[in-house]
Write a protein that binds this DNA or RNA. Structure first.
Lengths: 281, 281
DNA sequence: TTGCTCCTCACGTCACGTGAGGTGGC
DNA sequence: TTGCTCCTCACGTCACGTGAGGTGGC
């Protein structure tokens, strides 16, 4: 029998860790002196401890280790646990590799400009959405798109199907804001209301997003900065650009928007550019 | 000005997160109503928040983010922080990749045998150590090595230079336990005592280790299992095997060992095999 | 006997999550 | 007026770390 100090030195863990495993029911001492509360371990408990430390080092939580080492009968649960952890590790490696590239892109960019002046690109998942959509080729943004939005909002309002999410524009051209732009105006609909012919905008597992405020003059330069950043981060565009209008001015004569999305001052506009991306091979 | 709920929806964070950043001094609301305590944010604070969320997603802690976004003057600290994090990420990826291989090796192994019966190989760093050493070619283990240990222990004891660490054996042969084994007996010395000609055993950044208890009959089969495991884990031996005697029987006539390392029953022997390894290219 | 070992609280870490219980705003 | 939003405690998470204050063992 070994005292806790000797046992802990052999396994190179702290006494507190052994206390914790005792309390957690992962590894209880072979014997506890009732008088003094002293914990005593047998030599072969070292092997049990090694097993625990191995699984912990591989990244399992103590709860998972309990399952993995628990009663011998549950082969399936044990196997599923290890398989699940394998996937977690694989995903985590891929994410860290992308993080590393993004960090390099950021460091490059902020050698002279500080981070505070760099365009901030965030990666996020875009959920699928049911929208009322209207797609057209227009010669320029000004006027046409506003009219399309007003018609779409009015149509959605008439059916009381408007969901509480921001309207957006899809740019179907590969060359953006070329002549005759192929744009699609989208108004999110509540999932319950299927009165209107809802179009489903597919989800994007990963999208590069920039949220900015102020008027639309800056959009082009932000989009350009975003493209440079994507390139340096090893990401590739894999779907149409979305321009989401979170906060804006609107002449709402035929419909009613919640006041919190509206503003009169263009300095308070909040807009988001979203580009679906995949990691370059 | 935006109320906290609207602001949080735009940035897709919880209200609690904003509370936390306020408290942490990372992002304080542009205005707080003194009557109600309500927090109000401006639209352009969204960009500050995005910056924070970006750095957090890259893996920085809130403290680090505070430094990274802090007063503009400290360029050097900011750059060092990003460089440091780059290294952290790189290391973390390499470690996860090794973990993944080790996990695969473990899953393979425990398809039929459960984890509880698998040989547990742990990876660890071995620190450099000053030892009293004596190296010889011996025809077999039995007898010779015991005599070498007793002589070495006696020599170390005479100079009162014995450190409180376990003695071990280095196997210099590539073919292990071949005929005429080239073994080196090592007794750890306290760093202060340099009276004896101490030999420095180099550190190993990474070593595969198996601790087992019981008599020495099992050593060969454990070593074999270890070799198979190393192969499957993508690891390569890069130094001599060490056999460390943590707990054992000894006839200590010319020296004195602390009683906690001694035992009379061979079932209570505690031994550790250590093999320095590197990741295969 | 002295110092070393071990014990049990109890609080801290990190970035929030999750109610509880109460008030302000439209 | 009613429901919705927001507020401030206060405690939980996870795997221990770090004393505080006291006792047992050799």
């Amino acid at each position: 029998m070994l005292r806790i100090g000797d046992f802990s030195r052999l396994a190179r863990v702290t006494i507190k860790t052994l206390h914790h495993y005792d309390e957690a029911g992962l590894l209880c001492p072979a014997h506890v002196d009732l008088q003094t509360g002293y914990r005593y371990y047998t030599a072969d408990q070292l092997e049990s401890l090694q097993r625990i430390l191995l699984l912990k080092d591989l990244g399992l939580s103590l709860d998972e280790i309990r399952v993995a080492l628990g009663d011998e009968t549950d082969h399936a649960a044990r196997a599923a646990l290890l398989r699940g952890h394998r996937e977690r590790l694989t995903r985590s490696i891929a994410e860290d590799q992308l993080r590393l590239k993004r960090l390099l892109a950021l460091s490059d960019d902020s050698l002279d400009r500080s981070i505070s002046e760099t365009t901030v690109v965030v990666l996020r998942e875009l959920p699928a959405m049911d929208v009322y959509a209207s797609r057209e080729r227009v010669p320029c943004m000004h006027g046409y798109v506003t009219a399309m939005f007003e018609a779409a909002e009015a149509a959605a309002a008439k059916h009381q199907a408007r969901a509480d999410a921001s309207p957006f524009l899809l740019f179907h051209d590969s060359e953006w804001r070329d002549q005759d732009i192929d744009v699609e105006v989208c108004i999110p609909l509540s999932s319950t209301a299927s009165a209107l012919t809802a179009r489903r905008v597919e989800s994007a597992p990963r999208a590069a997003c920039v949220t900015y405020c102020g008027n639309y003059d800056q959009t082009q330069s932000i989009y350009d900065a975003m493209l440079r950043w994507l390139d340096r981060s090893g990401l590739q565009i894999c779907g149409p650009l979305r321009e989401v209008y979170h906060r804006y001015g609107a002449d709402q004569s035929k419909y009613k928007l919640p006041s919190r999305v509206l503003t009169t001052s263009s300095a308070e506009y909040v807009t988001e550019l979203q580009v679906p991306v995949i990691v370059k091979a």
